[in-house]
Computed example of a mutant assay.
Amino acid sequence: MFADYTWTELGSIFAMQGFAGLILFSVFVLMALGLAIIFGQMGVINMAHGEFMILGAYVTYLCSNFFEAYLPALFGIYFFFAMALAFLAAGTLGALVEWSLIRHLYKRPLDTLLATWGLSLILQQAYRSIFGAREVGVTLPNWLLGSVPLTDIIEIPINGIFVMVLTFVIAIAVYFILFRSRMGMQTRAVVQNRVMAGAVGINTEKVDRNTFALGCGIAGIAGSAFTMIGSTGPTAGQLYIVDTFLIVVFGGAASLVGTIASSFAISQAQSTMEFFLSGSMAKVLTLLTVVGILMLRPQGLFSLKIRR
């Protein structure tokens, strides 16, 4: 596999695929952070998580068209408005779904899996009916076009750098929300002991709704970031849902550090192997490796000690 390349060529290949892996890592982290909050903190298997991501992508697409047609002077900063609207749209839909569906299915993980899978199909058909079956893309502002050359043969796309910076900012924000805010304290209290949390005056139903909405809102931001590097279609979210669940389980449910670490490991492994092997074979080898590690450490790379 490596015999046809010189050491210099291999170094350049690993560097280029490493940067490509960082961009994939950014999308994985944004997707997995929202799912880690929903699955890790609440125990809800949300198979419609990818569709919340695509909702954010379509909101960004609509904002792009609106600013381009009616506010061309502000087109250079439209993405920041789109990201905020994507968070609000996905978060609001998440709160509605939790109130109307999920709250009736707590402690019934198989039922939540089936219900959210049905919800994902409904949302896919809704997107197909509203936006059409074809994939759509956004128009990037001029400052997001082009690339930054590192060497004569290695260049980093500016939009990829922007997505990585955005991921870092969102990860820091999630850390402060979960570990340095009143909402995070209440969420962790409910996870550790729901009955005692309710006894001391915490509104556990409100915490559940806010937590689910936050996870879905972060998925909406992931959808906005996704438009920077790819096109959007009604079923695009399903391409990432399996990898996202794999990341959350591999990193350890409810572990923010584990989610980031497993996102990095899986994205780098897939990006590098896809250059030398087919994309499907790269996924198979990654999956087999993760399964083997989980057989030895079923709690994941990082696990939290929670009193039940």
Results as ranks from 00 to 15, higher is better:
Gly184Asp: 02
Ile172Phe: 13
Ile177His: 02
Val169Arg: 04
Phe176Glu: 11
Leu178Glu: 03
Leu178His: 02
Ile170Ala: 04
Tyr175Thr: 06
Phe162Met: 10
Gln186Trp: 12
Val169Ser: 08
Ile170Asp: 03
Leu166Asn: 06
Val174Lys: 11
Met185Val: 10
Ile172Ala: 15
Val169Thr: 12
Gln186Phe: 15
Thr187Asn: 02
Met183Pro: 00
Val163Trp: 02
Thr187Pro: 00
Leu178Thr: 04
Ile177Trp: 01
Val163Asn: 03
Ser181Trp: 12
Ala173His: 05
Met164Arg: 03
Met185Phe: 12
Gly184Lys: 02
Phe179Gln: 08
Ile170Phe: 11
Thr187Tyr: 01
Met164Cys: 12
Phe162Ser: 08
Phe176Asn: 07
Val174Glu: 13
Met164Glu: 07
Met164His: 03
Ala173Gly: 15
Ile170Met: 13
Met183Ala: 15
Ile172Leu: 15
Met185Pro: 00
Ala171Cys: 03
Val165Thr: 09
Met185Thr: 09
Phe176Arg: 08
Leu178Lys: 01
Ile170His: 07
Val191Cys: 09
Gln186His: 09
Leu178Pro: 00
Phe168Arg: 00
Ala171Val: 05
Tyr175Pro: 07
Thr167His: 12
Val190Ile: 04
Ala189Asn: 03
Ala171Gly: 01
Arg182Glu: 10
Ala173Tyr: 06
Ile177Leu: 14
Phe162Leu: 08
Ile172Gly: 14
Gln186Pro: 00
Leu178Gln: 02
Gln186Glu: 10
Arg182Leu: 15
Gly184Ile: 11
Phe176Ser: 06
Val163Leu: 13
Arg180Tyr: 13
Met164Asn: 10
Gln186Lys: 10
Met185Ile: 14
Val190Trp: 00
Ala173Asp: 08
Phe162His: 02
Tyr175Asn: 12
Ile177Gly: 01
Ile170Val: 15
Val165Phe: 07
Met183Thr: 09
Met185Ser: 04
Arg188Cys: 04
